[in-house]
Simulated scan of single mutants.
Amino acid sequence: MPTVPLKDVHLGLALPGRGRARLALLSGHYIYYHYGCDGVDDRGWGCGYRTLQTLCSWPEGRPAGVPEPAAVQAALEDMGDKPPGLRGSRGWIGCVEASLCLDHFGGPQGRPCHVPRGAGPGGGGGWAVMVGGDADAQSEALLGPGTEAYVLVLHPHCWGDPKNPSELQAAGWVGWREVSSAFDSNSFYNLNSLSS
C-alpha cells in the first residue's frame, strides 16, 4: 500500500561538526521518495528513480510533474538513450539518465558533472545534487554541502512507512556525513547539480 510521502525530512537535524560553521542549504521544499513509497517493491534497483523523483519535486515540494519509474523508463527508451527492454524491467538509472529526464519532464535544470576517482564530490551549496558512482553505485541526494567538510545526505533506500522526519533521521536515512567518510575513494562519481 502506498504511503503518504514526507516533505523536507532534513528539518530538525542537529548541525554537524563542532564550533562555528557556515552552512549552505537548499532553498525551497522537496518530497522524500524512497523504496516502495508508491507500493512498488523496487528494493535493489530503484534508488536512481527515487532520487530523480525527489529532485523533480523540488523547489515547490509538490508531486505535480514527478514521473513514476515506468514513465522514466518509457521516456529513456523513447529518447533513444536506452534500447527496447528497459520498460517494466529492474534496470538501474544514474545521474546521466536523470539529467535527460529532468529536461524531458520539465523538472529543475540539471548540470551534470563528473568527478574522477579519488577526487570526491564537493563544492558550494544552496542547491540539490544527485550523486552516484561506479564502485559506489547507490544513488543519493546531497541537499546542501557544508563548508566544514560535511554533506547532508538523503538516502532513498528506506523501506517501510516512515511516520515522520525524526524516524528517518534516527535510522540514518537523512543526515550529515563527513566528506571523508561519505565517498569511496575507489569510485568515480557523477553528479547532477540542480538550480530552480
Rank of each mutant, 00 (worst) to 15 (best):
Y150V: 00
G146P: 01
S139H: 07
H155M: 13
P145F: 09
L154T: 03
Q138Y: 07
D134P: 01
P112A: 10
E140S: 15
G124W: 06
A128L: 15
W127G: 15
L154W: 08
P121D: 00
A141P: 15
V151P: 01
A128G: 15
W127E: 11
G120A: 10
P112N: 10
G124K: 06
G110S: 12
A119C: 04
G124A: 07
L154M: 12
H114S: 15
G144F: 06
P116L: 06
L142P: 05
D161P: 13
V153I: 11
V153T: 12
P112H: 05
A141S: 15
P112C: 07
V153S: 15
G124L: 03
P116S: 11
G132R: 07
D161K: 12
W159Y: 10
G120K: 08
G126Q: 05
G118M: 02
Q138D: 14
L154H: 12
D136N: 04
V153K: 14
Q138G: 13
A141M: 15
V115G: 00
H114N: 13
V129H: 06
P112Q: 08
P156S: 09
V153R: 15
R111T: 13
G123C: 00
G120H: 05
D136K: 02
E140W: 10
W159S: 14
G160S: 03
C158V: 03
G160T: 01
G124S: 11
S139W: 02
V129G: 05
V151D: 03
E148R: 02
T147H: 11
C158I: 01
V129I: 11
G122V: 00
G124F: 02
L142N: 09
P116E: 12
G146V: 00
A149P: 01
S139C: 13
D136R: 02
D134T: 07
G123K: 00
S139Y: 03
H157L: 03
R117D: 15
M130E: 11
G146S: 09
G133V: 01
D161M: 10
H157Q: 09
R111Q: 10
Q109L: 12
H114K: 12
E148K: 00
V131L: 03
M130R: 06
G126A: 08
A128K: 11
L152T: 03
H155G: 11
A135C: 10
Q138W: 06
Q138P: 03
G133K: 01
D161I: 06
A135I: 09
G126F: 06
G123P: 00
L152R: 12
L154S: 13
P156H: 07
D161E: 14
V129R: 11
P156R: 03
L152P: 12
P145C: 04
R111W: 10
V129T: 13
G110Y: 09
P145R: 05
L152G: 12
S139L: 07
G124E: 09
W127D: 14
G144N: 12
G110T: 07
G132F: 02
P145H: 08
A128H: 11
H114G: 15
G120M: 08
V151I: 03
A128E: 11
A119S: 02
G120Q: 04
G133I: 01
Q109R: 15
